[in-house]
Write a protein that binds this DNA or RNA. Sequence first.
DNA 1: CTGAAAGCGCTTACAG
DNA 2: CTGAAAGCGCTTACAG
Lengths: 322, 322
Amino acid sequence: MNRPRITDVARLAGVSTATVSRALSRPERVSAETRATIERAIAETGYRLNHAARNLRHQRTGSIVALVPNLANPYFSQILSGIATVLSPAGYNLLVADTRTTNPLRYADPSHADGLIVLDGSVPPSVLIERPTVVVSEQIPGLSAPGVLIDNEAAAAMAVTHFADLGHRKIGHVTGPRGNVLTEQRLAGTERAASARGLPAPVLIEGDFSLASGRRAAQAWLEMTDRPTGMFLASDEMACGFIGELQRHGIGVPRDVSVIGFDDIEMVEHLTPGLTTIRQPRGAMGCVSAERLLAILNGNDDESDTILPVELILRASTAIPR
Amino acid sequence: MNRPRITDVARLAGVSTATVSRALSRPERVSAETRATIERAIAETGYRLNHAARNLRHQRTGSIVALVPNLANPYFSQILSGIATVLSPAGYNLLVADTRTTNPLRYADPSHADGLIVLDGSVPPSVLIERPTVVVSEQIPGLSAPGVLIDNEAAAAMAVTHFADLGHRKIGHVTGPRGNVLTEQRLAGTERAASARGLPAPVLIEGDFSLASGRRAAQAWLEMTDRPTGMFLASDEMACGFIGELQRHGIGVPRDVSVIGFDDIEMVEHLTPGLTTIRQPRGAMGCVSAERLLAILNGNDDESDTILPVELILRASTAIPR
DNA sequence: CTGAAAGCGCTTACAG
DNA sequence: CTGAAAGCGCTTACAG
């Protein structure tokens, strides 16, 4: 038995395919009686709509693609989860592509996806201009697509202000790679807040967001003669590496140095000590980005960015300095 | 300017659409001269193939769907990453559906996906019989689809054997929810290995794989008069909860009790102490499941299961008993 | 090697 | 409210 097509239903119901199609998509335009006949024929044949055919006719794909820099990274999977929550009830498929293994150009193609949600700031803007696009978390220089972002500068300022409130005067900041948009924004917030609270300029150490660079930052800290008592690191991964390396050298956190991270990835709650950090609302970022993209596809969206609020999560890694 | 179609290329090149189509899919069947003309026309028009149309004609979708129980869970995202690695070069799109928010039936539909990779053991087998399917990690009772699995029983036995090698005699096991396939296999391995090494029957505590149930298991352990010195927990999450709760009560790991988890999720490496655990090769599980599915789609696959090797990762949470 | 034509399974503007 | 017909953009068996 082949899969029944709309013509099979039409024949059995004694109507045209046009009427069957209407009964499916705009039932109110079909008389109740005809509708009932068609419904019986559908049940009898076991007919199910072929979405590929409908989509071809409608010049759409019914799919949205999410471009992620690293599918294995939990930071992104939580955003994806938010995206899926919104897309699924809207009837869209969620396509996922890891930019390490897939050329983003593939999905700039209108015959693959109706729109893009880009979680990777390094995707060249030129490939994104063809399709409706929303960027999440990281802006893409030169691309005028709506973004779903956080205020990185204000978030960094929250961290430094918390140190100041606790009584820390000597602050250090481990940055991401210089030139990165997030790095510069968080650095600006760090310096602004320190200055606003009358603290000396923060000591800077360059990192690259990775665990290993956090360990290296710990080495740098250990070698300082006048060590900062409050260290703010631009990612939780770096904070993990930093604390782990210090503990290996007998340095206590927060006894000898208070530490604040950035992101609130899941594991940092379970560290000893639990990590004080800036929580990014990743699920919400995913939801909102999907909503914004759907709005664009429905023709009612402005071009503005959405800024989502962050939260300073207080845990055991920060305390009053000795 | 509308997007050029194959007819536009054909007109410009002065050939039929059939020839253009052939030049694209089987260039060797077109004369070199014609091919060159067509290539020039393609470049001039900026033509790109419409995959939706091709797929409709071929009665395929070009997409594979992965059904996951929880997209936000890093355990699954690492498998997904492996899947993407294989699917992308093969020209397939990866569709991802979270079974909490999406009805799996949607993707059992041939017009949505060519095949399924199921990471959720609770998907009813009835929805999976229609399309080529591979299950990963968790078998589905009543479904005769190839599985990409680990030997859970042997893995559990490795954990218990390690305890025995260290000199532990009194072993405890925190299970997953009873009735779950993984739970029963790991339990069987635990009991078999204990018996094989002449140890008394392990003390059992029922959990549900969650962090909270690990905490409850710690409470149960604390109340025991004759406490096991080696605790094997059927998930890393439970092991985290267990260790955290014990530490809160001043119990040292591994000083007072050695702990082994299961999965080797990323965070457990960074705990204090680092967690000794059974590593599941999640990336490889993803790769292999995708390869198996592609083999099925190409008509050359047997029905056998693939069993991937696990590894006991030794860290600081296990030691010789006092 | 190349073309005319049918067809994948739908949808919809148009006419009645 | 309903139908005949064209069309979404490809592909391919068949004939030459």
